[in-house]
Design a protein around this nucleic acid. Structure first.
Lengths: 297, 297
DNA sequence: CATACTTAATAACTATGAGTTATCGATTAG
DNA sequence: CTAATCGATAACTCATAGTTATTAAGTATG
C-alpha cells in the first residue's frame, strides 16, 4: 500500500490503453504479462480508480481511463520535449545571454557578434544594455550581465578580459575648422584647441589614452566639455564648441556634420575588450567568447 | 547505467532546487541526505546534463537546471490535476451522458432531469437526441446512447427499464367539435370518429394502449392518419381531420388551437420509462438513474 | 591557527518491490 | 469435446532505492 505513481506506470498504462491487450502490450514493453498486470493493478489502486474493464476476454478503457490516456500522452510528450530542451540548454544551443556594451562597440563588434550568433544558434536570445565600463563591471560581478564590451586595461579578480577589436583614433573637427581640409599635419597643432572628451568616469582607459596622445605631442589638453554620449560630442563639435578625439569606428552610425581625420601615425589604439565572470556557467557565454576570439570579429 | 527517469527524480530535484541545500531538501522529503545525493546524481547521468553547481559549499542551479525547475513544477502540477480529474470522472462528477428521448418526454421528465443534473454536477455535459423507441433501443445496445426515454413495456436482454412518469391520456378535439364543450361523457361517444395516432412503429405501446382504450368502449377506432410528431397530430386535429388521444403532458409546450379533455376515468395510463444497458459503466449514468428513480421527477 | 561544526560525496549494506516463471480459471474457437 | 488464448495469482529473485557510517573539504569561532 501507499505506493507512488511513477512514469513507468504511465508508460505501461499507455501501452495497454493502445493495444487493449495485456500480452501484446507487455511484449511491446519487453516485460512479462504478469508484471504488467501487476503494475496496472497497482496504478488503479494508487488512483483509487479502475482504468480498464476486463470482463470476459475483453479489455476496454473506462471513462476515467479514456481521459487519462490523453493526459498521459500529453505528459509523456511534454516530458520528452523537456528532456531535449534541457540538453539543448546545457549545450548552449538554446538560451539567453545578457550583454553590456559601450556605445562605441555598437558600430562594429556587437552587430557582427549578433549576426553570427543568430546564424549559428537561432534560438539564443540576447539582452542588450548600453552601460559604462564601471556599470558593466558591477553588473557582471553581481551576475546581472553575462558579458560586457569595455575599454579597460584590466578587470577585478574573478573576471576575464580579452581584447576583441583594435581601432585607430580619429580627430573630430567642425566642417569649417582651419585644419579640416588638408591642413592637419600632427597633434602638435592642437595644443591651443579645447577638447570635448568622453568622461573619465565613463571610460578611464579612453580618457587616459587621449591624455597620453596629447602628452606625446607635448601639451596638456584644455578640456571644455565631457559627455558619455558620442552623439552629444559630435553635436558639440558641429557647433564649434571644441574638437574631439574618438575611436574611428564611431564615424559610422551617427547622423552628423563633422570632419573625421584618422590618426594613423600615433601609436595609441582604441582597444575594445570583452569581459566576463570566470565562474559564469551560462553555456551561451562560451559560444560568444568562441565567436569573438576565434572568428576575429 | 540506463536507468529511467521517474517522478521520484522530479520531486527530489524540485526539493533541492527550492532549498538549494541537500540536507534540508532530504529532510523535507523524509529521506537521508546520501540517498538524495545519489538520486540527483543519477538524474544528471540520465539527462547527461549537470543540473546543479556544487562547488565550495554552495549549491546553485545551472541554466539547464533553472529551466528544468520550471518544467518540473509544471509537470508535477499537471499530474496532480490529472489525478484529481481522473477521480472526478470515475465518481461521475465530470463527464458526458448521451440521452435519447421520445418527443413527449421533453414536456416533463427531461427538463427536470437536466435541471437537477446541472445543479448537482455542473460539469456534466449532456447530449440529447429525439428518437423513436426502436431507434433508442438500437442506439443503446450499440453504445451510441447511454440512456433512453421510451414508452415500452419491456426491453431486450442486457438492458434495464424503470418507469419514471405516469400520465393520463387526453382526448384532443378541434375547438369547434360537438363534444368540445361539456358534451363529452365517455369514450363510447367516439366510435364513429376518425382517429389520428402516433405510428405503431414509433411507439407500439402507445398504439396498443389507445387500441385497448377503444376496445374497452366496445369499438374499433377508425384511423385516418398516423404521425411521429405531436405537432403534426395537433395540426391535423385543428383542421378537423380527426381527433386524437395522447399523453396529457403534451398539452404543454406546443402552440396549438385544439381542446384537451383529460381522460381520468379510464384505467389506462401513458407510462414513460428510462432504459439503459446493464453493463454500461459510464459513471454519470448512475447519477441519472438515481435522480430519476429516487427523486420522483 | 587549531578546533569544532558545517557541508555534500562515497562506500558498504539492507530490504523493498519490480519483474520473473509457473500456473490457474475462464472464455473462445475448431 | 479439446486446444488455444486470455488476464490474474502465487511464489520467487534480484536490482536498486534508501540506509548508516564515514570521508573530504569548507567555514566559522575563539
Amino acid at each position: 500500500m501507499s505506493y507512488r505513481l511513477e512514469i513507468r506506470h504511465f508508460e505501461y498504462f499507455l501501452a495497454v490503453a493502445e493495444e487493449l491487450h495485456y500480452r501484446k502490450a507487455a511484449e511491446k514493453l519487453y516485460i512479462s504479462q504478469p508484471g504488467l498486470s501487476k503494475q496496472i493493478k497497482q496504478m488503479e489502486e494508487i488512483l483509487e480508480t479502475s482504468l480498464f474493464e476486463r470482463n470476459k476476454k475483453k479489455v476496454a478503457l473506462t471513462a476515467a481511463g479514456t481521459y487519462l490516456k490523453e493526459e498521459v500522452k500529453f505528459i509523456l510528450n511534454h516530458l520528452e520535449q523537456s528532456k531535449k530542451q534541457v540538453k539543448r540548454i546545457a549545450n548552449g544551443q538554446l538560451g539567453e545571454i545578457r550583454i553590456g556594451f559601450l556605445g562605441s562597440a555598437m558600430q562594429e563588434v556587437i552587430p557582427n557578434l549578433l549576426l553570427k550568433l543568430q546564424q549559428q544558434f537561432p534560438e539564443i536570445q540576447t539582452n542588450l544594455e548600453e552601460l559604462s565600463n564601471r556599470a558593466q563591471i558591477n553588473a557582471i560581478s553581481s551576475d546581472r550581465l553575462d558579458i560586457g564590451f569595455v575599454r579597460l586595461a584590466r578587470v577585478p579578480q574573478g573576471m576575464q578580459l580579452k581584447k576583441v577589436f583594435r581601432d585607430t583614433f580619429s580627430l573630430v573637427l567642425p566642417k569649417n575648422h582651419a585644419l579640416a581640409e588638408r591642413g592637419f599635419k600632427g597633434m602638435e597643432q592642437l595644443s591651443k584647441e579645447s577638447f570635448i572628451l568622453f568622461s573619465q568616469d565613463y571610460s578611464p582607459l579612453y580618457f587616459n589614452t587621449v591624455m597620453s596622445i596629447c602628452e606625446d605631442a607635448d601639451f596638456t589638453p584644455i578640456i571644455s566639455h565631457k559627455s558619455v554620449h558620442a552623439q552629444t560630442i559630435f553635436k558639440l563639435v558641429e557647433n564649434n564648441l571644441g574638437i574631439a578625439i574618438v575611436p574611428t569606428a564611431l564615424q559610422y552610425g551617427f547622423q552628423m556634420n563633422v570632419k573625421f581625420i584618422e590618426l594613423t601615425k600615433i601609436p595609441q589604439r582604441a582597444e575594445l575588450s570583452v569581459i566576463w565572470k570566470t565562474d559564469n556557467r551560462n553555456p551561451v557565454l562560451k559560444h560568444c567568447i568562441d565567436l569573438l576570439v576565434n572568428h576575429n570579429l
